[in-house]
Write a protein that binds this DNA or RNA. Structure first.
Lengths: 231, 231
DNA sequence: GGCGGTTCTCAGCAACCTCTCAGAGTCGGC
DNA sequence: GCCGACTCTGAGAGGTTGCTGAGAACCGCC
């Protein structure tokens, strides 16, 4: 998965910390990111650079995300939008926005989730032709169908197991530290330590590597984990 | 479902919010959409681009939908029209105009309904040769006949159950979130939460999956629902 | 107005998932 | 082989999500 052609993203969030986190993550994923801190700046930047997608925080001091989107649409712009929204209210307001291929992510989210949603929206709106299937040996993960198979037979994963596997597969062949995994797969406000990663790696191995002689998830002692075909 | 050949649609509605919603939905469904905000613009655009179908709001400030349609007919145009109309009055007025294969949709409607009507009109007028039968395993939904069968025997569904099943079948193999389902199957002004979707999924399962060993409607915990044969 | 069918809400229950913790197991360095 | 550090695993508390049945509100139809 990923942004092969370097799509241009506009990111608008007034929280400095979160914004630079997201900017780094999206940039690292291959996107060409412009980051701004307010609704007005977002409108201006969208007009100037006409990005391929906009990530919009809903709660912003001057113009909120909905208003920015509404104005863009009124101007005739059809750029797809991914909203960042708090859990409490707003869910009803967000309804009606998943139509044109837009989407929304509820705070606190994981980086991996935002990236996955962004990719999915771009895939749906046709700006990116990347397939949605990740593969390693006889293991397949189809993101559209949200389906995982090993050797052709279905594997039933919980949400967190699924997200972890997707992150590992998206980076197969690369060793990932527990800290990296925590940062990408768990919500950004998660307070625990790396022990939870060991537990979930265990869950995945039980469901994927058990009863199969070829192990795909390998431990690099003192470093982290990696998914690849040969040991 | 689907507009395989990208038919050209003209959409006229003065409500900015609704117009961009509809534009996004129709475009996402594969139509090539031009959107305008008034009756005069609609007339001008129809003359220039001669679209395959026009979606006309009845209530518009300068020229109302009826008048636009009348003038088009006077000019000799036979382009099919789908009217958008409020519930209260007008229903009888619209009747007189729906003769030439035209149709009308009462506000507030669901996106799925508008898309289905649009598809149906184009199918009837021959601009689109798409079949109207959706299938999954031994389950069939015939949209023209408005008929659902499982294993050859009829299944009796309420309107909402039918719409929900059609949306699921039209997207079979793809996971749909409760928000997406709400957006497409329920009226756009519906205020409730996703609980209603669970209830209706339950109704459908009782009527479709009961007494049959092959279940077709599957729950993806934390994500949504999907219709497919195995799994 | 009464009736059957439909839509929607709600609360209790069941199933599932997340995360913590402690003890057992494993590895590498010396 | 021994030690310390790292990793794996199982059990379980607590929280979340989805399912279901009951019933209230609504509608069109007679």
């Amino acid at each position: 998965m990923g942004a092969m052609t370097g799509e241009r993203l506009l990111l608008a969030d007034d929280d400095d910390n979160l914004r630079s986190m997201l900017e780094a993550a999206l940039r690292h994923h291959g996107y060409d990111v412009t980051a701004v801190a307010s609704g007005r700046e977002a409108l201006a930047a969208a007009g100037e650079s006409s990005p391929d997608l906009i990530v919009l925080d809903v709660m912003m001091p001057d113009l909120d995300g909905f208003e920015v989107c509404r104005r863009l649409r009124t101007e005739g712009s059809r750029v797809p939008v991914v909203f960042l929204t708090a859990r409490d209210a707003t869910e009803d307001k967000v309804r009606g926005l998943t139509l044109g291929g837009d989407d929304y992510v509820v705070k606190p989210f994981s980086l991996d989730e935002l990236v996955a949603r962004t990719d999915a929206v771009l895939r749906r709106t046709g700006a990116q032709k990347d397939g949605s299937v990740l593969r390693c040996a006889d293991l397949e993960l189809d993101d559209d169908a949200h389906r995982v198979t090993r050797g052709g037979s279905d594997v039933n994963l919980s949400p967190t197991e699924y997200n972890l596997l997707r992150f590992l597969l998206a980076n197969q062949g690369r060793v990932l530290s527990k800290a990296q995994i925590l940062d990408h797969v768990w919500n950004y406000d998660f307070g625990g330590d790396g022990g939870i990663v060991e537990t979930y790696i265990g869950y995945l191995r039980k469901k994927l590597d058990n009863g199969d002689d070829v192990r795909l998830i390998h431990t690099i002692r003192g470093v982290g984990y990696v998914v690849r075909e040969q040991g």
